[in-house]
Each structure stands twice: as C-alpha cells, then as structure tokens.
Design a protein around this nucleic acid. Structure first.
Ligand SMILES: Nc1ncnc2c1ncn2[C@@H]1O[C@H](COP(=O)(O)OP(=O)(O)OP(=O)(O)O)[C@@H](O)[C@H]1O
Length: 772
DNA sequence: TGTTCCCCTATTTTT
DNA sequence: TAGGGGAACA
C-alpha cells in the first residue's frame, strides 16, 4: 500500500502498447477547456508561464498538457518531468492523468522537488561524496545535531535557539550559499556552525532537505555528462505552484530545461505563502528574463467560486502593493453573502461552528467532505476537534503530527538506522540510553568528544572503549549487550526480512519492554503504533527504501476515506477546494499573526494567505472571530482582524453571538462608547488608513465587549496584576503581551505611557500590562 | 546517573 | 497551558 503510491523507483520500459489513449476522453477533455487554457495546453514547445489567479484551472492545464503531450506522442512518459511541492499534489496529478492515459502515468516523473532530487541523487551519489544508501535526516535530527554543535561551540542554546540556526542554514542552502559566505550578526559563529553541521552530515552519510536540491546542482556542476543526460532525457518540464520555488529550485529547473527549453510554469504571485521557507516571488519575473522568448498566458475565468467570494478575495488582495494584478470573473452567480460572526470567546466560536456545520449537514446542503475549517495556526485545530467530538461530527485533521514523527516511531526508526548504518551517530545517540542503560549526558558527551578527536564514528568509539575495558558500572554490561545486538542484526540485513529484523531488534534491545512496563493508556497507544509501524515494513524490500519513504512521503491515513469534515491550516489547504469553508480566529495577532506585524513584508504575505483561504470556498464562506481567547494559559483579548475591515460591507452578513456571559467570567460584559477609542491606542497599526480603526457601521453597532477594568476576575491576566494605585505604577517595570517589557514614564488615569525595550514608546491601557 | 521541580518562553506556516 | 532546559538532590 505504501510502495504503490511511491513508484518513482519502478522504472518500467515504456511500451508501445501503453501508448494508445482513448481518443474520446481526450477530445472531451480538450473541449472542456476555455480558449486560454487550450492555448496553454497546446503550446507544448518553448518556455511558457501560466500566471493566473485562484481557481482558474492552472492545475487542470498542467495535467491536460501532459495528457496532450502523451496523446500526440511528443514524448515518452519517462521523458516528462512534472514537479509539485506536496505529495498530495503529486498524487492528485497522477490520479487525474491516470484516469485518461492509464498505466503509463507510472512512468512519468511526477513528484515533489525533494522526492525527484532524492531519486537523482541516489543514482549518482558518488559524484558528491555520498554512498547510495545515504539517509535523509528530518527536522528533529537536524535540531538535535545543531544542539550538539552549539554546545560544542559553547554557544548558549537558551539565548541562541538551535532552531534559529537551523532556519538560517536552511535558508542559506535555499539560496545556494556555502558556509564561506554565511554571516549573521544575530547568530554567533554561524560560519563555523554551518561548516561543522555539513561535515557531521557527510560523515554520517546523510543529507538534509536542502541538500537534496543543492547536491543535485553540485552533481550537475561536477559531472556535465550526468547533466546532459537529464537535460536530454526530459523533453518536457512542468511545475505547479511555481511562485513557491526558491533560488536553488529555480536553478535546478533552469539547468534541466536548458536544452529542450520546453518548460511550463504555472503559478499565482498572489498565492505565494512560503517566503519563510525560502520561496522567492522574484522567480516569476526572472523566468521572463532568463527565457526571453517565454510565452505568458493569463487565465481569468474562475471555475470554483461565486462572485461574492471572488470579490471578497479581490478586496483583500488589492491592498497589497507588490503584485502583478489580475481580476477574475466567474459564471457561477452572485452566491450568498459572506457570513461574519463575532463571538464572545473561542469556546463559543468552536461550538457554534460545530452547530452550523450540523445544521448544514442535516439540511443536506453539503456533505462532510465538502466542508473545511481552515485555521491560521496548527494549535487552533484543537478547539474544533473537541467541539466536533461533542457534537458527533466526523472530522479529520489534515497535517499536524505525522505518523513517522511520533516519538516511539522515531526511536524505532533510529534503531533500524543504526543497524543499517552503524556510522549514524545521530540515530545511535538518540537511542543509546532509551531504554535507560546507564549512559548519561556526560558519558555520551565523552564519547562524542573522542569521536571528534579521533575522527571516527560514535559506534567505533564505543567499541574501542569496550575492547579496552574502559567502561564501568551498569553502562558496561548494557552497552556491550547493545552493541552485540546491533552487530548481529547488521549481519542479517541482506538475508532477513525488514519486518523480522525490526520486530526482533525492538524486542531484544528492550525498547518494546520499556513501553510495556509503563502500563499506561498512553504507552499502550505507543505500542500499538510501533506494531503498526513494524507491519508497514512489509511493503518495503530494504531499509533504504523505507527510510526514503518515511522522510519524503507523508504517511496519511488513506484508509480513512469516509465522509468527514476537514480541519487544517490554510497552508495545508492550498490547491484544495470546498463547497463550504469556515475561517475562524480572524483576529489581529492570529490572522494576521502577531509575528507578521513586525516584518515589513509580513503583512503582505498574511494577506496572500487570507486570499488563499477565501478562494478555497466554492459557495459558502463563514468568517468568525472571538473577542477573548484562552491562550498561553490565560485569557487574551483581541480585536477583529484588520482583514475583516478590508472586506466590502455590502458583501457581508454580520452577526454577533454571545450567550449573555463571557465564558471566562460572569456578568462582565458591558458596552463602552469609549472602547474603540481606547483600544485603538493600544494597537499600533502601520498604515494611516487603519490607524483610527474606524469600524464600519455594522461593527460599531455590535460594539465590542470588554471586561470592566476594575472587576476582579481570577481568569484575567489584566486584573491579577493590575494596580489601582497610580503612583506605584510610575517608573514601574511592566510587561505587555504585545510589546514586551518596558518602563512606565507617565500615568494618566487608565492610560500609561511606557518606553518598551523593543517596541519604543507607546500609550497603552493599564489593564493590558502586568508588573514585571 | 536519574528524577523532580521550578522557571521561562511562546512555531505561524512545511518539504 | 505545555514543553524544554537547568538546578538541586537522591
Ligand atoms: N475549463 C473548465 N471548465 C470547467 N471547470 C474547470 C475548468 N477549468 C478548471 N475547472 C475547475 O475549476 C476548479 C479549479 O481548478 P484548478 O484547481 O485547476 O485551479 P487552480 O488554478 O490550480 O487553483 P488554485 O490556484 O487555487 O490551486 C476545479 O474544480 C476544476 O475542475
């Protein structure tokens, strides 16, 4: 079941037989396209850029194009390279193409950038100093490795987060920078850390995600024959979601299509939402420069959404300055107004959303599969899961913790990795003391420093220590034991089945017993996961194949095909469409996220994200926000998202819902005319237009509800540290949720003037600061 | 070495 | 609230 979805490795000969395609299906497909789409499909030769808004059929153009190429025998399937960003998209594309061309879809190179690069890299690893069984290390390993390195460099990881280094290094790789030209004032010794990180990866015969692309380029550079081979092989190159490419990926595409020049990129600059992982919108402009004869086709008819939805999306995105600009139209009719709900708190929001979904389902307006709740951040899914559970709504959370990311699965995989590759220091150090074997932090650090000194793998250090009888205590026996087990299984690796090795390995090393002895429901669940993991190994012939699957292909529960409402992040929803979409948590600080407000380009990207979110909806869109929200263990008050104000009131249907009392307190709602006024001072908007924060009529009528400032309430962050004595506030060091730490320089009734350490001088309401 | 307890911060997004 | 990291102690 796993291997079958991932058939990049089964290269069968293209047979003449397969090439016959049902011509009725083809002509029907082509007939269904509009003129511009058809033009994009038929312009097979030469560089082509399809730049078009959401729902205009970009993906459809891409699949139709491939089908058309095959139908006209312009290339063998194996000469077509189609690149996507997610496995989901790759799978979907395969399915669509397969429906028409049948089995030959399996010979097309369809996959994510990373999967395809891994495949190429596995064919020529020696060119860049790897062995063909190299492992791709994941995020968790990357962080652990960096933590080790930072500790070695005596860099305080409390002050300089390993993740910050990881981010920086990944971005450097995305833009093809080497340690030599790495520098960052905020990250000490970045150069050295980066260098060491690369060195450690290579000595473990492994590569990280960024390396996959960078090493492909290195192969192309070091071995022109290999490059020429692929350049000639791929007659047609196609890329979906082109706006998400980073510099390295762009170069890769450029190189591969240099000879045939048949490259087709489809994308939408307004949907660029991955700049934080290196995506560069400039690649769109660059394309027209690098391929001077590039044809550009724009698609303007949207086949997905109603006019109201499209208009709303357009109202949002037209606030962005940096865009190519396009306007969509649809024949799907005006549609219903966008519903906007204001809730008292997050609980009510989740509950009422569940209610509305229930109503829609029972009126048979939509099916569960056609409904999605899209959130800005992963943690927001929880409230909805709970509410849906309570209301017996079947749902699935898409994204989130993946199967292979669970602790017990990562541990199990680490055991297997050590068997397959004893030099895998990271895997060994992960499980050397799991279960407890009397090897503490200091012992491990000692092993590591010897490894570094003698330039040998960790495993070798331990073997030497055993041979020279340098170990003592319980560690001695347990380690000797462990190493023997690893050696024993290492010998079986070609003869025994993967499944048997795993089962016996996890039993003999005591890993399974560790969980069994814990005797909790949670541990039981972990054991079940491990069992499931062991069983999936049946689908793989060797460890390398499995590891590649685990690291590159997200394991989704395909069994779970029954009707269910989807809950996912907006990022995860890109490329998808639903009849009915709920967009909760539309609050400043959440969507747009508070982080994005600091950065110059941040708000524009948030707006694009909002654009993506809105355009997922076909017919029904419901936006909501909560006035208070339980977060960080406290009640936080927030304002409706500035994006709501960017929507045209005429398209909206506004309603305020509160059950009299705020969930977090009793009878503490009151209307304050001064509220908007006061609140606006607490928030610091960048552009003039929003500075006064004038709500349109419907919002003003609804009035925002806030707790009285002086009412004590143990749920409230504001009241518990709030001092009524103005004198004591002067010169006081305080903390503000948004602006951080600062010193009070002026007290004016309920308002304080504060010099914040990071955010400068601001006037804020006393209620929103606490004494630091 | 291992455990516990306290403090602090805060992933927003993912191949 | 949760989760990680560091200090303190058995
Ligand atoms: N010519 C057409 N006639 C009818 N329906 C079409 C046509 N072209 C596309 N569609 C439909 O419109 C919807 C959106 O198409 P598609 O997903 O390819 O758009 P997209 O541009 O890739 O969208 P996004 O940018 O949001 O990913 C799909 O349901 C598709 O089947």
């Amino acid at each position: 079941m796993f291997a079958s979805n991932y058939d990049l490795t089964n290269q069968t000969q293209d047979s003449q037989d397969d090439l016959r395609i049902n011509s009725d299906k083809i002509s029907n497909l082509l007939k269904s396209l509009n003129d511009q789409q058809l033009q994009a499909v038929k312009s097979t030769e030469g560089p082509l850029l399809v730049l078009a808004g959401a729902g205009t059929g970009k993906t459809k153009v891409l699949t139709s194009r491939i089908i058309n190429i095959l139908a006209n025998s312009l290339a063998y399937p194996s000469q077509i390279l189609a690149v996507t960003f997610t496995n989901k998209a790759a799978q979907e594309m395969k399915k669509r193409i397969g429906e028409i061309v049948g089995d030959q879809v399996n010979n097309i190179w369809v996959g994510t950038f990373h999967a395809i690069c891994a495949k190429i890299l596995r064919r020529h690893p020696e060119v860049v100093g790897l062995r063909s069984d190299f492992t791709i290390i994941d995020d968790d390993d990357q962080t652990r490795l960096l933590k080790q390195i930072l500790n070695d460099f005596n860099i305080d990881i409390k002050q300089f987060a390993p993740r910050a280094y990881l981010n920086k290094i990944s971005r450097l790789k995305d833009s093809l920078k080497t340690p030599a030209n790495a520098d960052d004032l905020a990250l000490p010794k970045l150069k050295e850390v980066f260098e060491t990180y690369q060195f450690r990866l290579r000595s473990m015969n492994s590569a990280d995600f960024g390396d996959l692309i960078a090493l492909n380029l290195q192969i192309f550079n070091n071995d022109p024959e290999v490059l020429a081979y692929y350049q000639n092989k791929f007659r047609y190159v196609l890329i979906d979601e082109y706006q998400d490419t980073n510099d390295a990926q762009y170069r890769w595409l450029l190189q591969l299509s240099a000879i045939n020049q048949n490259i087709c990129c489809v994308g939408d600059d307004d949907q660029s939402i991955y700049s934080w992982r290196g995506a560069n919108i400039a690649n769109i402009l660059r394309f027209e420069k690098d391929f001077s004869d590039a044809k550009v086709i724009r698609l303007e008819q949207n086949y997905r959404s109603t006019t109201r939805i499209l208009n709303s999306a357009h109202q949002i995105i037209s606030n962005n300055k940096q865009r190519h600009g396009k306007k969509l139209w649809t024949e799907l009719g005006q549609g219903e107004k966008i519903k906007v709900f204001a809730y008292n708190d997050d609980r009510l929001e989740a509950l009422m959303t569940a209610n509305k979904i229930k109503d829609s389902l029972s009126s048979k307006k939509v099916k569960p599969n056609e409904i999605a709740v899209l959130v800005r951040a992963g943690h927001q899914t929880r409230a909805f899961e709970e509410a849906f559970m309570q209301n017996n709504i079947s749902y699935r959370v898409i994204g989130g913790m993946k199967f292979y990311e669970r602790m017990e699965i990562r541990d199990s995989i680490a055991y297997l990795r050590v068997v397959a590759n004893p030099d895998d220091d990271l895997a060994l150090s992960r499980i050397i003391n799991v279960p407890k074997r009397g090897i503490g932090e200091t012992a491990l650090a000692n092993f590591f420093s010897q490894a570094k000194e003698q330039k040998i793998p960790l495993m070798q250090v331990i073997k030497n220590a055993i041979a020279n009888n340098e170990l003592k205590g319980k560690g001695k026996e347990s380690l000797t034991n462990l190493i023997t087990i690893f050696d024993q299984f290492n010998k079986q690796i070609t003869s025994e089945s993967l499944l048997n090795i795993a089962r016996n390995l996890l039993t003999q090393t005591g890993y399974l017993a560790m969980w069994k002895s814990e005797n909790t429901v949670e541990a039981q669940g972990r054991i079940e996961n491990i069992e499931e993991f062991i069983n999936t190994l049946n689908d793989f012939t060797n460890i390398t194949e499995f590891l590649e699957y685990a690291s590159l292909v997200e394991a989704r529960d395909e069994k779970n095909l029954q009707e269910a409402v989807s809950i996912m992040t907006v990022h995860g929803a890109k490329g998808l469409e639903f009849e009915m979409v709920f967009l909760p948590g539309l609050e400043d600080g959440i969507f747009p996220s508070s982080k994005s407000l600091d950065e110059k380009t941040g708000l524009e990207e948030e707006r694009r994200l909002m654009y993506v979110a809105i355009t997922r909806a076909k017919r029904f869109l419901t936006i909501s926000f909560a006035k208070s929200r339980y977060m960080y263990g406290d009640v936080q008050f927030s304002m409706p998202s500035r994006f709501i104000k960017e929507l045209n009131e005429d398209e909206l249907d506004f309603e305020e819902i509160s059950f009299g009392n705020n969930f977090y307190g009793k009878n503490n709602n009151y209307k304050s005319d001064k509220f908007d006024d006061e609140f606006s001072q607490d928030f610091d908007y960048e552009d003039k237009k929003t500075q006064q924060f004038q709500f349109n009529k419907s919002f003003q009528q609804s009035s925002f509800i806030k707790k009285p400032a002086n009412q004590t309430n143990h749920y409230s962050s504001a009241s518990k540290t709030n001092s009524d004595n103005s004198d004591t506030m002067l010169n006081q060091r305080v903390f503000h949720q948004k602006f951080g730490y600062g010193k009070v320089i002026k007290v004016d009734d309920k308002k304080l003037e504060i010099v914040f350490e990071k955010a400068g001088t601001k006037i804020v309401l006393k209620d929103f600061v606490s004494i630091a």
